Amino acid sequence: MLGDLSGTAKIYIVCGYTDLRKSIDGLMAIIRDQYEMDPYSNALFLFCGRRCDRIKALHHEKDGFVLLYKRLDAGGRYQWPRRRDEVRDLSRQEFRWLCEGLSVDQPKAIKADGNRQF
């Protein structure tokens, strides 16, 4: 189904700035050539531009690619990690935080091993 991300195995955030004028093929090339990852894997790849108010998400389904685009209203900005050479694996909770405009590095979040992080 178009854009159904519930079965996605991994969520990756492509840190740094991405030229959001890129289409599916351009974003696939970044994933494949720059980060040596498989754009056809069961993963969601997230990209953000310089303004930090819009993101693109690329996901491969059985019959083709889905490109999602979201722009925040009213001056909202994504808290996007900017280290250019990094692709980061996100948990579903970190993905929700990001989509809500929060940082993926919450200082008081409970870590996966059950310990509080202070």
Rank of each mutant, 00 (worst) to 15 (best):
D38Q: 09
W97P: 07
K10I: 02
Q79W: 04
L27P: 04
A74E: 10
V66P: 05
V14G: 01
S23K: 12
D73E: 15
D63K: 15
G26A: 05
K10F: 06
R71H: 11
R82Y: 03
D85Q: 13
Q34E: 04
P39S: 10
F65C: 05
L102Y: 09
R71C: 06
S23N: 13
T18C: 05
P81I: 00
Y40R: 03
K56P: 06
C52F: 08
R96H: 08
D19R: 02
D4A: 08
C48T: 01
R83D: 15
I24W: 02
D113W: 03
G49I: 04
D38H: 03
H60W: 10
T18N: 03
V87H: 02
L72G: 00
G64A: 10
L46P: 00
K56D: 00
C52S: 13
K111L: 14
I110M: 15
P107K: 04
A29K: 11
R116D: 13
G114N: 15
K70V: 12
N115Y: 14
N115E: 15
W80E: 09
G114R: 05
E86N: 03
G101M: 01
K108Y: 13
K10Y: 14
L58D: 04
T18Q: 10
R92N: 05
S6D: 03
M1E: 11
F47T: 00
P39Q: 12
R96V: 13
N42F: 01
N42D: 09
